[in-house]
Design a protein around this nucleic acid. Structure first.
Length: 611
RNA sequence: GCGCCCGUAGCUCAAUUGGAUAGAGCAUCUGGCUUCGAACCAGAGGGUCGGGAGUUCGAAUCUCUCCGGGCGCACCA
């Protein structure tokens, strides 16, 4: 906890009040997450009424601002179960919450809602404590301390360009990593690339016969993609080619030095190209353990699953059925093909084992699109039974699924000639469009600065368009909506950031060290609205993290930026009255801090002074 | 055929997982820049939450049933 040593008379009174409060009741301190604080207080009260042993849950949540800051709904469900009068029960609880009245206005509403509204002095205190990204994090980091999470995301196939289909996994996955880190978990970022597929037979066939060295030097991935298509067409047209391609694959898998070298080169080039994309998206993997890595680890899977009786032979293949499941009792989980080769189920099972043994993972989040939910369900079911039989700890397995990126015709987004849009091109166009816009708004900025701003705004817009939406649904991708920069967009949030920086710049203050001592409690309607929003940052983070849904945080940040804009329009910051100015500078600074912290959690850059 | 997901304002999307009068943006209309950045703000209109039935203090959310749309379902990953 930090207190401003230069706080004036008012600050001293607050300090005194805090000390007294802590002496009388430790719950009176204001922690990072106020909802949890209220939850604890309600449990104490419910304990005195002997409600806890009968299953009382406080059910504290953020309230509609019209009703208060937080509300506790637990009395309703409890009274219903116990056939009591909910309002009378809520009143009994409220009567025991006297200590909270120093910081909150408590009211009873409707059939038994308990409403909590933070008093301005309490708002001020919270704002004084949580004054930096570090302090916000230290407040949040207790939630998942000690947990290890593996996030399996992005996972493109090598020898191919990344395209729009790879966008969501990368963007959502990175945001989840950052959210989990923020809440105290150890996070392992694992790029489970597809580097051992059957595409290599045709590709190596074409590489050996039709390689264009100049094209390879200019843009290797482009050339590999051309070669793959060439090989694919040739194999379709001529069975002899297909046979040769299959032969190349057999040689590769048999460890042939030439083919392995080609394969290695393809992977190296692919990973380098991926990294160019990842750099723009702020992604850095801890591990890139693709399918090839598990090549020699699948035999153990076959052996263990067969020995345990989970896997059986069927039509020549090794499969797992789940008799208790309505569908998977007949729909097999195919873990080894009839030709003896591994498939993605084999390597996914081997991966689950490896992660359990080597990383002691408490949780694994698979950021993979919804079309693979059958596969994920079968994988999780099989892993669960397998680990139980072998007495291994089972990590929490989460399929973080997401919908398809659609074009304006409501079909999966493609180029005009029906090809997938490359991520490289998409990000380039985003930056280009942002540059045009920045240039039209601020033609007087130097070009280099306009470029730098466009790089931030353009990429952030693409990321945010994805993260601001519930991942479960498909979403329609339109440049119009994304780059026109109105409404719930990255640009709107970054504009708020730029305007706050502008105030500090114009007033000659260091944004890191604003003169906020002597700040008084928020008082105007806009100030109070903004302060009330700021203290709910932790709830948004918690909601986003617990549900593995970043859009909860996006929505919060958008509302925060909106409240700031209203405040900015209503209340002038740089005024003569020192206490009033300090108060408003404090609000500006904390808004900047929370906005940047939140945007960083989503994986966006915020490094622009103006835009 | 079996199963999963979805259907909310003209359009694009929310709704803290069963809570209070279903909210935003775009578009439309009205007002606000000699005052810290108007990429902004204030306000207005716009809804049988796909239809119907049920569960209960309370349903967009849960159950059933229709109607529409998307996606999976034996050797691609």
């Amino acid at each position: 906890m930090q207190l401003d040593p230069f706080a004036g008379h008012h600050g001293a009174k607050i300090l005194l009040a805090q000390c007294q409060a802590r002496f009388l009741n430790p719950l009176m301190d204001l922690p990072f997450n106020i909802a949890n604080h209220l939850d604890a207080a309600l449990r104490v009260a419910a304990g005195k009424l002997s409600l806890l042993e009968r299953g009382f849950q406080p059910e504290v949540r953020v309230a509609d601002p019209a009703n208060g800051d937080f509300q506790a709904n637990g009395a309703l469900a409890f009274a219903k179960r116990e056939k009591q009068n909910p309002r009378a029960l809520a009143q009994q609880i409220v009567d025991l919450l006297g200590d909270l009245s120093a910081d909150f206005e408590l009211t009873l509403a409707g059939p038994g809602f308990i409403n909590f509204r933070l008093k301005p002095d309490a708002l001020l205190r919270w704002l004084q404590i949580y004054d930096s990204e570090q302090h916000l994090q230290s407040g949040a980091a207790s939630a998942r301390r000690g947990q290890t999470w593996i996030v399996d995301y992005s996972s493109p196939n090598t020898a191919k360009q990344m395209h729009v289909g790879h966008l969501r996994s990368a963007v959502i996955g990175e945001a989840l990593c950052r959210l989990l880190v923020f809440s105290g978990a150890k996070v392992i970022r694992d790029n489970h690339i597809g580097d051992w597929g059957t595409q290599f037979g045709k590709l190596i066939w074409a590489y050996k016969r039709h390689l264009d060295p100049a094209a390879l030097a200019a843009d290797p991935l482009e050339e590999f993609e051309r070669l793959y298509k060439f090989g694919n067409h040739a194999a379709e047209a001529d069975p002899a080619v297909l046979t040769q391609a299959q032969q190349e694959l057999v040689q590769l898998q048999g460890g042939d030095a030439t083919n392995l070298a080609i394969w290695q080169k393809i992977n190296d080039v692919s990973l380098a190209a991926f990294q160019v994309i990842y750099d723009q998206l702020g992604i850095k993997f801890d591990y890139t353990l693709g399918e090839s890595f598990y090549n020699d680890k699948v035999a153990r899977v076959y052996q263990e699953l067969t020995a345990s009786g989970l896997a059986t032979e069927s039509q020549g293949a090794l499969v797992v059925f789940h008799p208790e499941h309505p569908r998977f009792k007949t729909q097999p989980f195919l873990i080894r093909k009839k030709d003896g080769a591994a498939n993605y189920a084999s390597s996914d099972l081997a991966t689950a084992l490896y992660r359990s043994e080597n990383f002691q993972a408490d949780g694994v989040a698979y950021v993979i699109d919804f079309r693979q939910s059958d596969h994920m369900d079968q994988l999780f079911l099989t892993t669960k039974k397998w680990f139980e039989q072998t007495r291994r700890p089972l990590p929490q397995l989460e399929h973080v699924d997401f919908g398809t990126v659609l074009g304006e015709d409501n079909k999966p987004l493609k180029t005009r000639n029906g090809e997938n849009i490359r991520l490289k091109d998409l990000l380039h166009e985003a930056r280009e469009r942002a540059f045009q816009l920045v240039s039209s708004k601020n033609p007087d900025f130097p070009e280099a600065e306009r470029r730098a701003i466009a790089d931030v705004v353009g990429v952030a817009s693409v990321q945010y368009a994805d993260l601001s939406q519930n991942r479960s649904s498909d979403y329609v991708f339109t440049w119009e909506k994304m780059i026109s920069l109105e409404g719930n967009t990255a640009a709107y949030l970054l504009y708020a950031v730029a305007r706050i920086r502008s105030i500090f710049r114009k007033a000659g203050f260091d944004p890191a060290q604003p003169p906020v001592s002597g700040a008084t409690a928020p008082a105007t309607a806009a100030e109070i609205m903004l302060a009330r929003k700021l203290v709910k940052f932790s709830d948004a983070v918690q909601l986003a993290t617990n549900n593995l849904r970043p859009h909860f945080l996006s929505l919060y940040l958008y509302e925060l930026a909106g409240d700031y804009s209203s405040f900015y329009a209503a209340d002038k910051v740089i005024v003569d009255d020192p206490a009033l100015r300090a108060r408003r500078l404090l609000l500006c600074h904390r808004t900047l801090t929370v906005l940047e912290t939140g945007l960083h959690l989503l994986g966006l850059r915020t490094d622009l002074a103006r835009m």
